[in-house]
Amino acid sequence: MSIASSPGALAGIRVIEMGQLLAGPFCGQLLGDMGADVIKLEPPGAGDPMRLWGMGDEKVQWEVIARNKRSVTCNLRIPEGQELARKLIANADVLVENFKPGTLERWGLSPEELHKINPGLIIARMSGYGQDGPYSDRAGFGGIGEAMGGWRYVVGEPDRPPARMGISIGDTLCATYGTMGILAALHHRARTGEGQVVDTALYEAVLQVMEGLVPEYDYNGFIRERSGSILPGIAPSNVYSCKDGPFMIGANNDRIFGRLAEAMEMPQLADDPKYATHLARGVNQTELDLLINAWTGTLTIDEVDALMIKHSIPAGRVYTAKDMLEDPHFKAREAIIEVETEGHGKLKMQNAFPRMSKSPSGVRRVAPTSPGQHNAEVLEEVLGMAEAELGELAAAGAI
């Protein structure tokens, strides 16, 4: 795969990314994929702990989350590092940070101080509980946001404790909403010239995707419980067992269910009072799922898939990464690309998303291999620093 040729929709926007682990860096990844110049500040030495994250013997998650970024080391815990950050931020459009609330203020980098030197600056702050409120000074990770935002309680089997997804969804949701806020703030700045603070809390980001969970309780006194692989009352919509593995079928619409009944060679099901309507199927959900599972168990995944396509029924295979890499649709849409990385050679990873017709996003720069890899390049380009000044910063422990 060649490096993307399009500059991206956010070309010309400079982002300073501060903070570590997932929420702030994922926000930086999204902005960088869209063309922003993302300058990542890492602590001197080991850098961002994300460099060591991932599964398997070789840790490659960094290659995704740090793509389209330049690494500059900056010791934010000493005055010299704080002053360096202040100078970089003065020349930026966006600051992304995910420190515990109050940290920037202790470093003399509060929004009030930063807006004095850069009135148009957009400051995206990501934290467990937000910048105010009685819990704001508590430490927070994505999993805690998932728990307090309502996600964990409804995930898992009803007779077992709350479960989790195998990814850090709380962090990435927070980062995605943070990115949305940044884009809106850029539009506001284009009209008014004003910068502002985008305050994104992990638990509130999770809360946003919880559908009717709150009003259902407020109006009906109904509390959603764990329901395993189904949504109660939405049937059939489940993962069913074929001879050679699982397969997902979603046929909860009346007309689609009629087509599923035809595919199963049981057309009478569509007229059976127990299954003929959405409400009836919800009441008899368990019985219906057992009936469908008995049918899929007589067929292979390929055979069920062919029938679903023939009868125009929403359905899909339950993919692993291996399946994705072999799928022709993923290939045709370039959902997964191959990048020639500096640290791990050719590496397949998810492409930039969403797709844009006039200003495509993409990978223009591979992840930096070492903290501070772009110190000289960035500090000369942005601040006009000479080699001697870089030496002084290094001697002071700032970079």
Rank of each mutant, 00 (worst) to 15 (best):
I182M: 05
Y135P: 02
S241K: 15
V155G: 01
D218C: 09
L231N: 15
P119Q: 01
P232V: 11
G193N: 02
I234G: 14
E105N: 08
D159K: 12
L114I: 01
M126A: 14
P119I: 01
Y219H: 15
R106I: 12
L183K: 08
P134C: 09
D218R: 15
E225D: 14
I230Q: 12
P162N: 02
G181A: 03
S227R: 05
G143T: 13
V209M: 12
I234T: 07
A147F: 11
Y153T: 14
W151I: 14
Y135G: 06
G156F: 00
G102K: 02
A184R: 06
I182P: 02
E216Q: 10
P215M: 06
V239S: 11
M126D: 00
G120K: 03
M180G: 14
P158C: 08
R191S: 10
G140R: 04
I123L: 12
N118W: 01
R160C: 12
G221I: 09
R106L: 07
G170W: 00
T200K: 02
T172P: 04
E105T: 10
Y219Q: 10
P232M: 08
S241Y: 09
A205W: 12
G128D: 07
L104P: 01
I230L: 15
L104H: 06
G120W: 03
A185L: 08
G102V: 00
V197R: 03
D171C: 08
S241E: 10
N118I: 01
G233V: 10
E211H: 01
G212F: 09
I169V: 13
E211M: 13
P119E: 01
I223N: 04
A190P: 12
I223D: 05
